[in-house]
């Protein structure tokens, strides 16, 4: 979902500036229909919660109904949107809009055209192609939209900075980047970390030291980091990385496939005929040209015999993690040790 589709968009959910603005003026109010779209459930939930909070501020008797759009039928919808007997102010949250039964679409659009004054309707669509027709029609009816797409990896520090500003703290760019490195890419975890840091910083700017103190060493480790360390022959760091990776939920098969890919490239590089031009060499090895530099570095200390041993160990480990042995963790550790010891073998 790109930014700027339709006139009704009021902002991206993760953009702190928008949230601030929303608190002041453009807050959802009774009589609105608010559309929340996008696959990031954390942000969608937050948008829904803040909309409910905005409507029920200073009131005690706002009635909130929260249900899946798939369960909706004409009777239920009429009951929920019709005038209330007790004239209470109400919020209706319809989740998973993509599951809305087709026959309900006209009723929903009709309501969006003429919403009730004492009611806020929040429609939550989980992103994706399903139910796109309804979205387009709703956008034409110019309802307000909040886009809850996950920020891109490089936008995460910005998300952190916004988050912390929102909570009343301050953080510099380096600190935000360090926090992302330490906590990982999960928005819930990041938001939790931000609120913890702000409440414990005592009004000071949040420093990288504080981040290190709270989240030191918990960086996200990819399977490639494990493979790189093992291929460089650094046994202990490789084992440490492996443990982190497995604890972070990296699947065992990804570790074996990263290792296999790394060794394959290396073996092809070191047995390629000498005197090839860069581009030809890259084609021969089957890697992008920029990777050749890394391979050249890695290839030092590897003999064909060592590589052969390593590749066979990886094949064995791949079978082991796919059920040939009982303990995938042990199989991977044995593989990492075999591979890193094969490095530098004469």
């Amino acid at each position: 979902m790109t930014n700027g589709v339709g006139a009704g968009i009021v902002g991206r959910a993760w953009d702190a500036g928008f949230v601030m603005a929303a608190r002041r003026s453009a807050a959802p109010k009774l009589g609105d229909v608010l559309l929340v779209t996008g696959s990031e459930t954390f942000l969608a939930d937050r948008a829904v919660r803040s909309a409910i909070a905005a409507v029920s501020k200073g009131k005690s008797d706002v009635e909130v109904t929260d249900l899946g759009a798939g369960e909706l039928d004409v009777g239920v919808f009429a009951e929920l949107t019709g005038p209330s007997l007790f004239s209470a102010e109400r919020v209706l949250v319809l989740r998973m809009l993509e599951n809305l039964p087709t026959e309900m679409v006209p009723y929903l659009l009709e309501y969006a055209g003429a919403p009730a004054d004492d009611m806020l309707v929040v429609l939550v669509h989980s992103g994706g192609q399903k139910g796109k027709a309804v979205l387009d029609k709703l956008r034409k009816a110019s309802v307000n939209e909040v886009v809850a797409t996950a920020p891109k990896t490089w936008e995460l520090p910005q998300f952190v900075a916004g988050e912390i500003r929102l909570l009343g703290g301050t953080i510099d760019e380096r600190g935000a980047a360090a926090l992302v490195d330490a906590v990982g890419h999960d928005l819930r975890a990041l938001a939790g970390a931000c609120s913890q840091l702000v409440s414990d910083s005592g009004g000071q700017a949040i420093s990288t030291d504080l981040i290190g103190q709270y989240f030191g060493g918990r960086a996200e480790v990819t399977s490639f980091a494990v493979a790189d360390a093992a291929i460089a022959g650094r046994t202990e760091p490789a084992l440490e990385q492996l443990r982190w990776a497995l604890d972070c939920g990296v699947a065992a098969v990804l570790v074996t496939s990263a290792m296999a890919g790394g060794l394959r490239g290396l073996a092809k590089y070191s047995s390629a005929p000498p005197g090839l031009r860069e581009a030809d060499l890259a084609r021969e090895v089957g890697v992008p040209p920029w990777k050749l530099k890394t391979l050249r570095q890695q290839a030092r200390g590897w003999t064909p015999g060592g590589l052969a041993t390593a590749i066979k160990a990886v094949a064995q480990a791949d079978a082991d993690v796919k059920g040939a042995s009982g303990d995938a963790g042990y199989a991977l550790e044995r593989m990492v040790i075999t591979v890193s010891r094969a490095h530098g073998r004469r």
Partner: peptide, 8 residues
């Protein structure tokens, strides 16, 4: 055993 065919 479902090992990646190329690796096997």
């Amino acid at each position: 055993m479902n090992v990646a065919p190329l690796l096997a």
